[in-house]
Design a protein around this nucleic acid. Sequence first.
DNA 1: GCCGTTTTCGGCCCGACTGTTTTCAGTCG
Length: 572
Amino acid sequence: MNKKDIIKTLEQIAVYLEIKGENAFRVSAYRKAAQALERDEGTIEEIGDPSKLKGIGKGTASIIEELMEKGESSFLNELKEEIPSGLITLLALPSMGGKKIAKLYQELGVEDAATLRKACEEKKVQALAGFGAKTEEKILAALDDFGKRPDRLPLSLVMPVAEEVTRRLNEFSDINRFELAGSFRRGRETVKDLDFIISTDKPDQVSEQIGLMDNIKQIVGQGETKISLELEFEENLIVPVDFRMVRDEAFATTLHHFTGSKDHNVLMRQRAKENKEKISEYGVESAESGEVTTFTDEPAFFAHFGLPYIPPEVREGYDELETKEADLTLVEQGDIRSDLHMHTTWSDGAQSIREMVEANRERGYTHMAITDHSKFLRVANGLSVERLKRQHEEVRKLNEEFSDFTIFTGIEMDILPDGTLDYDDDILKDIDFVIASIHSGFNQKEDTIMKRLETALRNPHVAMIAHPTGRLIGRRDGYPVDIDRLIDLAKETETILELNANPNRLDLTSEHLKKAQEAGAKVAINTDAHRIDMLDHMPVGVKAARRGWLKKENVVNTWDAETLIAYVNKNR
DNA sequence: GCCGTTTTCGGCCCGACTGTTTTCAGTCG
């Protein structure tokens, strides 16, 4: 059993105990033990004695040891004997938690979705103490929706919704300021909902305007400080959106609270407790005087606890509170001076070279690369050698028009299924910025894929590997890659790895990026734009980079053109 | 179940909302 399996098992035990109606703190102890393992960077073997980690004591350590010896947990096996597995899936129903499920199981013999439905239809549920007719109706409605909707929505789908809601809020009256919080602000690649924090002196009026918005499928909840909606857009795109209304003095702490993550908030509150203080969304309360301190902005809030500003992207409850300011100074959009991966009408892009160049200049960059597909990719009108040469002639001519801007010739060259590259070295040697990438043979075994990648990495003309895992978020997993090996090779051969800024891709992940930075491999953030408007995905990529704790100096797009080309040409 | 410069017991992050109650438990974020 590896570390991931052990973490999963501990979390599974927590779920079973929850349904058993166990003490909530005992349940969370198993979750905390799982988190402690996750937080530690070592493998399970490197950790050695697990009980030396904070959050793992005698009980959970013995379970971990048993898992390592036997590959299974007798405790979990007992729980599985005792509790029908169908109950586990019921936890996914909204407003259903361990306590309610335990009661349904114990008093009505509910074992799964089907028996729960039957109990509701026979009106047995509303007879239980603590349940009622409304609860029964809600359960039936939830069962009807069960499994129809994905748990989390990919960023690419919710981004336009976030923009649309932002546009509408800007038109509302009685709003001092507002900001989008939650996992969207933290830059996660999928989100459960959108959380808007609104500063207002008239929450009733704001709530009323929100309730009259277009596209409302239903109002899920409405209180004095909060209104929760489901907005429905085309193609069955249903996005839950929460709005929290607060007075302006509480805006910073509310924003922090609802930006999360939950684990980060727990760390902050524990820290406050050590100071005899209590954090809530309304401010920081002194336990002694009961006085509440509020803050003008988040930096002031963190400063109150002697902390540097912790960017939203790293608020995941790991070690961000223990990290020194220098390591929290992450790459930002303003640092980006180039986009190094994009397409034109020469292959499968929508715009001409000139149009793409102008669009890049408008975005304030100082250089760029035109990188159309290579000849293997016929469906994308990949460039023959002859067309490649003609295109590069055009790029060079265009480049002469600008004294303050540099256009690199480039190519996104396929790494072929047989492991060879799509062009010979004597073609590649004349190209400024050669990207290599995989668009075929996704079903190959990991070592075959790695051999293909290694060929590209070891070629002195290849500057960068694009979208190194090939995944499409929520649609396909990509091809199998040994990331650690890829990073080591990238470092050794001084080949750049791409963080693809397209919200459907976003490979590398934050874990990959952390490893790359630690290993000393360089990263590029590129939009891979096929249209001008896709160039605007750059901030999405920057956010993803910040989730990977990337510093400016390790992101090659922040370098000037001379430094970049010197790095690329070093080994040629 | 875990933890301790408030230490071996008694806490464990905090508040809003809903639906059930008639003062609060459960769920959620």
